[in-house]
Amino acid sequence: MGCFHSTVRKPAPGHENPIILASQTAFSVSEVEALFELFKSISSSVIDDGLINKEEFQLALFKNRKKENLFANRIFDLFDVKHRGVIDFGDFVRAMNVFHPNAPQEDKISFSFKLYDMDGTGFIERHEVKQMLIALLCESELKLADETIETILDKTFLEADVDQDGKIDKSEWHNFVTQNPSLLKIMTLPYLRDITTTFPSFVFNSEVEEIAT
């Protein structure tokens, strides 16, 4: 019988098969199962329903459920691909996959474009960037005069908006982040390399007969 469970357990509702999820992502089966440990702890923090709602997501990010945050909302909306107001385990693993150190750079560029294209128009527009800058200033309690914000926006759009039509398209974004790779730093989570070490308890809750590495 060995150390591992020899039977396949019935998965929890909304819990997609880890073998299938591993085949669709850069994660191994063990890593998907370790991610489930993280998912379980987030999704049960307010309502134990196997789904992450916005409040639980904010709580996991800030350890404070009252803290509304434009950027956390934006990330949540991008994870919530089915637009149901909740993130299921499959959504979570597939979104986290983009943040894997081995994920293709193109996927990271595309995700970051969507993150900043808040209105979903296919362009990052100046008013969106201004809104995000103001949100950042509120969050950090940093004070900048409106004139300074406009100067930062002028400089940014001069560099990024090559055709100077007042908005950044996907191709301009691609070139801009390629020239400024530090902008993609938020798109990589080194933690994902060591997820099985961070959540070793996945071994005891495994649904597969053998733990693949």
Binding site: L38, S41, V129, L133, L136, T151
Partner: peptide, 26 residues
């Protein structure tokens, strides 16, 4: 005061709300 030399996206990417590492902190 010092002039701001970062572009808007460098500043925005400092947001705590965009730092998903905190999801892994128990």
């Amino acid at each position: 005061s010092q002039p701001v030399t970062m572009n808007a996206f460098e500043l925005i990417s400092k947001s705590q709300g965009l730092n998903l590492s905190s999801l892994f902190e128990k």
